[in-house]
Design a binder for these strands. Structure first.
Length: 571
RNA sequence: CGGGGCGUGGCGCAGCCCGGUAGCGCGCCUGCUUUGGGAGCAGGAUGUCGGAGGUUCAAAUCCUCUCGCCCCGACCA
């Protein structure tokens, strides 16, 4: 296509709203423009990239046996009430009413709608397994949209839903999607890692996230260098210390700790280290009950694990007044000894400790040489802390490492959560009615575009991987002579005819402007046509990634381009 | 929702503290010269200073309210 006929409003300066690389470059390259907070218009260049990613996703979905359909963007409240998510999903679910005052929501995900379709249309096990997907705009009313397309409110997503007759079949479907995702992100040219994940608002029993590795990622993952083990840090299991401290119990001893309400303060005052302390954290459940959890001083609590252990939907850190009420002390002095009337659980690292320091449930008081079993008892020891780099890997025991990632895909084995709630059943071979076993599988298409830029850029602009580049080649006449323009025109026709996606910069601009825009836009190859080269009968093919230039006669360029575009050493 | 910050021409910003009727760079338009990494000269256009109210002889500037946006946090897939 010709630049003069496309809306590609490149910017020299970065608009003030953009902070992260992908956001900045997408604005500057004229790919997107903001319409409202977290809501963007895709300009021609941006849309071409989305279409490229969609194409890869479609091919791999079809290969894995999924079929495409398209569900509505609005869903009736009634369906969401059936699964309880109308209330449970919270403010992220954008709701509206029609002229008859009927309630609807903008679909943030489509389990309800697809399950409704399934229960209406599928009767027999003979129709299973079934896997349907769509590529559609989703809306989630995020608390804080940010980073451009990385966390928008409106975004493009591929979501797939599988229905199987039994758990074993569902696991096969899950594995097929997992494999398809690996192929998709590999084909997009991304360095990624599949990690064990928690299931959040979607629910289910087994889940993996596909993380594009990038320092700007919002997620932290831990991984084992020596095995396949990798997990979202929120999900990663921790193992209890191998050795139990076998010191003889010493008598419990109160110690004054004026003003020391943090682990650090107490350690400084008592000349010890955080791993000799046990902090008592108070949380509130949705039912407003206060619960206490014991965590070693150098560890952090994991609220997802805690909520799971307590059997509640979620927990939030208790406020100062709730702490005062439960412990009769200000924040910073809570302890398990003599703490009555509330549930008390402990991280399994605490089980191995002896003679540790705890809060005294009184202002400016701590207790030394506390021991569980003797001075207090807990309801349960469990994995309740956040994993961190250096922890032993659950797979090999070697030390876990940490990395940042951008979640671009997420697969869930749902089980029968939705099919039971919505009575999505079928008759099995014995004529028995059974609930379908489901899985669901999402890919953030627009987020993938942003993640690709985070991973593939330099200080001049975007460096697109070939499969998702908006154009393969950028044709740049760098002089204004008749000869140059004529040659460029001929090459444009010939290359386009041959199926190469060429963006022809036919603007009346200086070479510098064109070259800078080309670097910004980031097509993998640039074709420079100018008087200098033509005097020797050649044009130049320049790789965007390495800057390497090859000189060739115009009529020999096609095979060279094809070769470059096909090789994997391009980004 | 808590904390911080910002709304001044298409973009980036100054001016605000200390009120006197708006300026710079880039871009845009015209002409001439230039033309292989964001040209030079000359001329020109573009601003309800986010909105409403108030104080004042006078408000971009001070006060109140309001809308929008960005960053950090809480939150989330």
């Amino acid at each position: 296509m010709r630049t003069s006929q496309l809306l590609i409003p490149t910017l020299r300066q970065t608009p003030g709203e953009a902070d992260v690389v992908s956001h900045r470059l997408m604005l500057r390259a004229g790919m997107i423009r903001k319409t409202a907070a977290g809501i963007y218009t895709y300009l021609p260049l941006g849309l071409r990239v989305l279409k490229k990613i969609e194409g890869i996703v479609r091919r791999e979905m079809e290969r894995a046996g999924a079929q495409e359909l398209l569900m509505p963007i609005l869903a009736p409240a009634q369906l969401w009430r059936e699964t309880g998510r109308w209330d449970f999903y919270g403010k992220e679910l954008l709701r509206c009413r029609d002229r008859h005052d009927r309630e609807f929501c903008f679909g943030p995900t489509h389990e309800e709608v697809i399950t409704d379709l399934f229960r209406r249309e599928v009767r027999s096990y003979r129709q299973l397994p079934l896997n349907c997907y769509q590529i559609q705009t989703k809306f989630r009313d995020e608390i804080r949209p940010r980073f451009g397309l990385m966390r928008g409110r409106e975004f493009l997503m591929k979501d797939a839903y599988s229905f199987d007759a039994d758990e074993a079949g569902a696991r096969v479907s899950y594995q097929k999607m997992y494999t398809a995702y690996e192929r998709i992100f590999t084909r997009c040219g991304l360095a990624f890692r599949a990690v064990e994940a928690h299931t959040g608002l979607i629910g289910g029993s087994l889940s993996h996230e596909f993380m594009v590795l990038s320092d700007t990622g919002e997620e932290t993952i831990v991984y084992d260098e020596h095995t396949d083990y990798a997990a979202n840090i929120e999900q990663a299991e921790t193992t209890p210390p191998a050795d139990t401290d076998d010191a003889a119990p010493l008598p419990l001893e109160p110690v004054r700790t004026p003003g020391a309400h943090t682990v650090r303060d107490v350690c400084a005052l008592l000349n010890t280290t955080p791993d000799r302390l046990v902090k008592t954290l108070l949380y509130q459940t949705p039912a407003r009950d206060v619960v206490a959890v014991l965590i070693r001083g150098d560890h952090d609590a994991n609220t997802i694990k805690l909520a799971r252990c307590l059997g509640v939907a979620d927990v939030t850190l208790a406020g100062a007044d709730a702490v005062l009420k439960a412990t009769s002390a200000p924040v910073g002095f809570a302890g398990p000894v003599g703490l009555a009337g509330i549930r008390l659980v402990a991280d399994h690292a605490v089980k191995a400790m002896r003679n540790f320091i705890v809060g005294g449930n009184e202002q400016d008081l701590h207790l030394r040489h506390a021991n569980h079993g003797r001075d207090f008892s807990v309801e349960a020891f469990a994995d309740l802390r956040q994993a961190r780099a250096g922890d032993p890997s659950p797979a090999s025991g070697s030390r876990l490492r940490e990395a940042k990632g951008i979640e671009v895909g997420h697969v869930f084995l749902l089980g029968t959560k939705y099919s039971e709630a919505m009575r999505a059943t079928f008759l099995d071979a014995n004529g028995q009615e059974r609930a379908a076993v489901m899985g669901c599988y999402g890919i953030g298409v627009s987020r993938t575009a942003a993640a690709a830029i985070e991973q593939h850029h330099d200080d001049r602009g975007i460096v697109w991987p070939v499969p998702i580049a908006p154009f393969h080649a950028h044709l740049l006449p760098v002089t204004a002579s008749e000869q140059t323009l004529h040659t460029a025109g001929m090459m444009y026709e010939a290359l386009t005819e041959a199926g190469v996606e060429v963006l022809w910069d036919d603007r009346d601009e200086r070479a510098g402007v064109k070259l800078n825009d080309a670097d910004l836009i980031g097509a993998p190859l640039q074709i420079l046509v100018g008087d200098k080269g033509l005097a020797r009968g050649v044009v130049e093919v320049k790789r965007r990634d390495t800057g390497a230039i090859t000189e060739l006669p115009p009529n020999e360029i096609l095979p060279h381009l094809r070769n470059l575009l096909a090789t994997h050493d391009l980004p």
